[in-house]
Amino acid sequence: MTNNVSGHSGPLLEARGLSKHFGLVIALESVDFSVAPGITGLLGPNGAGKSTAIKLFLGLLRPTDGSAEVMGQRPYESIEARARLGYMPEHDCLPPSMTASEFLTHMAQVSGLPPVHARTRAADILRLVGLDEERYRPIGEYSTGMGQRVKLAQALVHDPVIALLDEPTAGLDPGGREEMLALIGRIGHDFGVSILLSTHLMGDVESVCDRIVVLDAGKVTEEGDLSRFTGETEMLYIDVDDRRDELAAALAARGVEAVVDGLSLVVDHASDEQYDLIRDAVVETGARLRRLAPRRRGLAEIFRSASL
């Protein structure tokens, strides 16, 4: 796939031996990972080095060692590369006295768009993020959720190749969080703008991401397609209304190991043959079957089991 800066083909973002030290504090230590088109989650606890990695890719910081490249270029040296990046910071970054329309038009021009195009893009993007009606109100009067939408809009107003979103759901109520994630999903999957989503919330990553990079204490601990993590640990859930213990015994007699999880029996890595054996055991015990379905474990479970 060819990306838009100088016909670069390859990963949109690439960290090679990337280190960043702040005096004695090591934020990142010899990190290697890449970000391909689509939505990539940068997951890790607070202080893992996520924001530092994002700032290195934006050119706001210079690496202590190694390189952070954007479409094959170093962002702190290449204005061309920075022109095709979008950034939504975690912290407040909006001028309270400007209207959203004014602010977005201005930011589009600062991104290099001519005034007429900037105004059109600002109106389009504000409508896209659901701020069509409120765009002439000063940003200082906005709620937290509306402010987050303006922050997202300014990251997209110049149609970047990739937008780097730092904790975009921070401070949002559950409804607002769902809406923000749905919006990010549409942008990343339907609109062709790739996303690097930095978050410490596994639910955010599970909702919208195609791939994940897990950072912990300045190092990459996991990297790959989301489906690889959740797919590898597929489990079969068997819910019955009664005779659960008898069913467990019947399964054990057939060599199928089932673990009790709440009201369900869980069979890890169920094979096709085991499906037949489970069917036979249910018939034999006469248990009333309510559900027989695979379930992917959440990322939280994967990381919890990995840390044990």
Binding site: H106, Q109, L113, H117, D190, F191
Partner: peptide
């Protein structure tokens, strides 16, 4: 929906002027 932007990009000069 979303329309990608394929108009002119005037880079640093436009940014400076803005």
């Amino acid at each position: 929906g979303y329309r990608s932007y394929d108009g002119p990009r005037e880079g640093r000069g436009r940014a400076y002027k803005a």
